[in-house]
């Protein structure tokens, strides 16, 4: 059952060719560490986003392995160089249940 996970991808910095900007990605995933218990005392199963892949104009620029120490919502901000003509940044994620998602943002110069 696919649960809708809201994500957002924003840029900070000048959208000019060659400039280094910061991409800020967050995802409202529960990021259950597997250590918490619910009201009845039952352990809540671990379910976190464990892999994130970032593609800039379809080229893989970053791969991240996330552990249970990452917060909910997950927040990751990383630099990238604005390519000539701008383009598209895609952040792909996958969680322990096999659910996948994608956040896309255009880099418009």
């Amino acid at each position: 059952m696919s649960k809708n996970i809201p994500t957002r991808l924003a840029f900070a910095g000048p959208l000019k060719e060659g400039a280094t900007i910061e991409a800020r990605w967050s995802a409202a995933h529960p990021m259950d560490s597997g250590f918490r218990v619910d009201d009845s005392g039952n352990k809540i199963a671990r379910n976190i986003i464990h892999t994130v892949k970032v593609l800039l104009n379809d080229r893989l620029i970053l791969e991240a392995d996330l552990g249970t120490a990452m917060t909910s919502p997950v927040y990751l901000a990383f630099p990238l160089q604005v390519p000539a003509g701008g383009g598209v940044l895609r952040v792909l994620w996958q969680d322990d249940r096999g659910q996948v998602g994608e956040t896309v943002q255009r880099l418009i110069l």
Binding site: P6, R8, R24, P73
Partner: peptide
């Protein structure tokens, strides 16, 4: 706003 977690819910609300 670009880092505030509440905005994820606001955007979801708009959707």
């Amino acid at each position: 706003a670009s880092r505030n977690p509440t905005q994820l819910w606001v955007e979801q609300g708009l959707e």
